[in-house]
Simulated assay, not measured.
Amino acid sequence: MRMIQLLPEHQTPNHKPSKPTKEQLNNELNFHLAEKELMKLREEELISQEEFDQISKLNRQKFNPLLSPLMCDKP
């Protein structure tokens, strides 16, 4: 493994993370509730994997959840 030292000009400054707005929190909650229901439909084989992926993608677009990029390997 190769390691390099970051110079100060290449390091990110220390910022306090901003608090999410109520709208962002509501979007996050609604996204997770929609995904939970979607998973139930998939587990019961009422929708195909392709349909699941398409609907999940639409959910990410509609709700724009904060944690989606961390949890999903598909854009």
Rank of each mutant, 00 (worst) to 15 (best):
L33S: 00
I47Q: 08
N14Q: 13
Q49F: 12
T12G: 03
S68V: 05
K74F: 11
N59V: 01
T12W: 05
N27Y: 00
E50V: 13
S48F: 06
N14P: 01
C72R: 15
Q24W: 03
P13M: 09
E44Y: 01
L29E: 12
T21A: 00
L66G: 02
Q54P: 00
P69S: 05
E51S: 11
L46A: 10
D53H: 03
K36C: 11
L46D: 09
L25M: 12
Q61N: 09
A34V: 04
L70M: 12
E37M: 10
M71Q: 14
L41A: 10
Q49S: 08
K57Y: 11
P69V: 02
K57I: 03
E23P: 00
F52A: 07
N27C: 06
E23S: 09
P17K: 13
F63W: 12
E50W: 02
D73R: 07
P17F: 07
E37Y: 08
N14T: 13
F31C: 13
N26M: 10
K19G: 01
K36M: 11
L6H: 04
D53V: 08
E28N: 11
L70H: 08
Q49H: 12
L41R: 07
L29S: 06
F52H: 08
K57V: 03
P69L: 04
L38V: 02
E28R: 07
Q54C: 02
Q61I: 13
L38D: 05
R42Q: 09
E44L: 12
A34P: 01
M3L: 15
F63P: 01
P75L: 11
T12L: 15
K62P: 01
E28K: 03
N27M: 02
L25Y: 01
K57P: 00
E35A: 13
S48V: 04
P69Q: 02
E50P: 00
P13V: 10
N30V: 06
K74V: 10
M3I: 09
K74S: 13
F63L: 03
P13R: 08
